[in-house]
Design a protein around this nucleic acid. Sequence first.
DNA 1: TATATCTTGTGAAATCATTCACAAGCTCGC
DNA 2: GCGAGCTTGTGAATGATTTCACAAGATATA
Lengths: 206, 206
Amino acid sequence: MKKISDSAVRRLALYQRFLQEAADAGLDTISSGDLAERGGTTSAQVRKDLSLFGSFGKRGLGYEVQELLREIREILGVDRTWKVALVGAGKIGSALFSYRDFQKRGFRISAAFDSDPAKVGSDMGGVTVRADEEMDRRLRDEGIEMVIVAVPAEAAQAVVDRVVNAGVRAILNFAPVRLRVPRGVALRNVDLTLELEGLSFALTGR
Amino acid sequence: MKKISDSAVRRLALYQRFLQEAADAGLDTISSGDLAERGGTTSAQVRKDLSLFGSFGKRGLGYEVQELLREIREILGVDRTWKVALVGAGKIGSALFSYRDFQKRGFRISAAFDSDPAKVGSDMGGVTVRADEEMDRRLRDEGIEMVIVAVPAEAAQAVVDRVVNAGVRAILNFAPVRLRVPRGVALRNVDLTLELEGLSFALTGR
DNA sequence: TATATCTTGTGAAATCATTCACAAGCTCGC
DNA sequence: GCGAGCTTGTGAATGATTTCACAAGATATA
Ligand SMILES: NC(=O)c1ccc[n+]([C@@H]2O[C@H](COP(=O)([O-])OP(=O)(O)OC[C@H]3O[C@@H](n4cnc5c(N)ncnc54)[C@H](O)[C@@H]3O)[C@@H](O)[C@H]2O)c1
Ligand SMILES: NC(=O)c1ccc[n+]([C@@H]2O[C@H](COP(=O)([O-])OP(=O)(O)OC[C@H]3O[C@@H](n4cnc5c(N)ncnc54)[C@H](O)[C@@H]3O)[C@@H](O)[C@H]2O)c1
């Protein structure tokens, strides 16, 4: 299969959201131009993106909302529920934990780990925070497929090494460090300071 | 001035972080190859990025850490403190609010707004949460330059319209919606569901 | 059935970003 | 002061992504 660019995947995920909105609004069909407008891109871009995976539209009409939604969900792999664990039940970790939208979109956070004895044992929306030492075993036993890393920067690489070792192949990292992962492991970084610095540049770099 | 790509700005912000680390480690000089290795890119990429703004290195030696750090800070506009406000003092908002790193990197969150009367008046680390209605006036009066939007998706566009109207020209948005802003206003989206969907694709789409 | 009107899917062209490759500059050791 | 050894800065080459442009399929109407 050909290589799909990161930005194409992002757009696909956006189209999914727009299709959901269109479905909620009761629309039966939608055109590439319509999707483009909602996403701030062009109709050619939308069609190219979709053409990477097949021909889903009808000439003269557009795309059937429900059908395209189903297709994109399948392409993205969100036509199922993923088992996600959270490592680091601190401030940002607990905000993420209680975020209902993840569940709705197919990501269930079914385990949480922390090294702080004061936090271990506490209940977070039905899930008990477990000790750091139990992590490796539980990740395997519970068949966790993705991990959200929300520990301090200094601890992040060590956590990731263990998580990868436990067979997890997808990681969402909030710590402001460049993590090393073996090939075959998907890693995304959410780096908020970097985002603010980008805004700073935009205001400065006139 | 020529157009600087978004990815170049991201890398620049990363170099800044690596230079900080190098400075903390007591290094005097650093080569493009060294920066590249830390950032997972190539030395040619690093040199091209820097060459967009000038010639900062010495052939045969590399870059002086302190000097390059100063230059990049100036380029990014983080050689000063930005006044930031937070709108939406909910779960993610309060996590962000108490994040010390922003302050250290030049972003001071000096105001917070919420529409929930139960939250208005409460103290968040020395800053009082203000009522939504006071927002427009206070943004102007306090000279706020950036706003972090952490309100529910349905409320986000209306908030952004008001914020832009109050003269703010940089917005960091956490709500999962595509916001419309006039040209000249910088907008960055942090869309965590999108990130997880990207991971889902990586695990699925072979 | 013919015609007018849409909108897709896709090669080709254009634009944008990264990598290559190397001349030229600087340092160090002798 | 000279040669060896690095490392920068940058055109040129390559690679990737986006945009253009249009033939062809689908629908609706008469
Ligand atoms: N709070 C924010 O708004 C924010 C913003 C951007 C980035 N971040 C990053 O997210 C990460 C977490 O930030 P936070 O503000 O939630 O910090 P926090 O201190 O509130 O939470 C970190 C948690 O990780 C736990 N922990 C530490 N080492 C661990 C280990 N080895 N295994 C398991 N758990 C461990 C701690 O006990 C703590 O509960 C940091 O890397 C931070 O830089 C946070
Ligand atoms: N919690 C998370 O981990 C998480 C993750 C990803 C995205 N988000 C997004 O971030 C946003 C906030 O999420 P949250 O979990 O913190 O929700 P929350 O309900 O805890 O907080 C939202 C806050 O915004 C306030 N608010 C609502 N309308 C307002 C208005 N017009 N002006 C000012 N304040 C207003 C509410 O009173 C509330 O305090 C949402 O858009 C959500 O989708 C949250």
